[in-house]
Simulated scan of single mutants.
Amino acid sequence: MRRNSTLLVFGVAATSALMSAGCASDQDHTAATSTTTTTAEWTPLPPEPTPPDAVGVSPGGVTTRVDVPSDAEESQYGQACLAAKTWMDAQGGDPTVLVEPYLQVLQQPGFQDPGNFNTPWAELTPAQQAGVILAVNGAAEGQCG
């Protein structure tokens, strides 16, 4: 009987060892597959929320400041600046006084123009909104061609 128990214990130990080895290799395979899948399906994280005090809104309800780093490409900034300059020149008068009225135009629902990167204001990220505001202020200060 002792011999049968020894064989039984040895058999159980061997089976456990094989099952563990099999599980480990399955886990390794699963981990590799999971890593590959995760990498292939990676998408960028959404922008971090803008702190409430980082957004300046005028008494008229126009966003005039978004204190986050601008995410405007150079070509977008240039087009937005020129669009703002053209609009301000058509209005006449002091361009620095025209910043808020122009931003109000850009922020109207559905409005798309080079001044807001051809994207409605509500669809711009805070970093893009900061770029638009930067370009409008640049136009008012004569910083674009």
Rank of each mutant, 00 (worst) to 15 (best):
A54L: 03
P109D: 13
N137Y: 03
A17G: 15
A54C: 06
Q107F: 01
G92C: 05
Y77N: 07
T50P: 02
V62S: 11
A72K: 00
T35S: 15
A17S: 12
T63V: 15
L98F: 07
L8C: 04
P114I: 08
L18V: 15
Q129A: 13
G60H: 06
L7K: 11
T119N: 06
D53K: 10
S70N: 09
S34Y: 02
E141A: 14
G138A: 15
G131E: 01
P114D: 10
Q112D: 14
A130G: 08
R2I: 05
V9K: 09
L134C: 01
G145R: 00
T30V: 12
S25V: 11
T63Y: 03
L134Q: 14
E73N: 06
E41M: 13
Y77G: 04
A139V: 04
Q128D: 08
R3Q: 14
G60I: 07
A83W: 03
G93S: 09
Q104E: 15
A21V: 12
T63R: 13
D113E: 00
N118Q: 08
T63G: 10
G11D: 06
T30E: 14
N137A: 05
T63Q: 15
G145C: 02
Q91K: 13
P120G: 05
G92K: 05
T50C: 08
D71T: 13
A31I: 06
A90W: 02
T6N: 09
T63L: 05
A140I: 10
Q104P: 05
P49D: 10
S34V: 10
S75D: 12
T37Y: 13
L106A: 07
S5T: 10
F111N: 00
T50E: 06
L7G: 15
G115H: 04
D113G: 00
E73P: 00
V105D: 01
V12G: 00
A54N: 13
T50D: 04
Y77L: 15
W42A: 15
A72F: 03
D71Q: 14
D113R: 03
S16Q: 04
Y102D: 06
L8Y: 01
L18Y: 11
G110I: 09
N137F: 04
N137R: 07
L18T: 15
L98A: 11
A127Y: 08
P59F: 08
A54M: 05
V105C: 01
A24G: 13
L134P: 00
S5Q: 09
P44H: 01
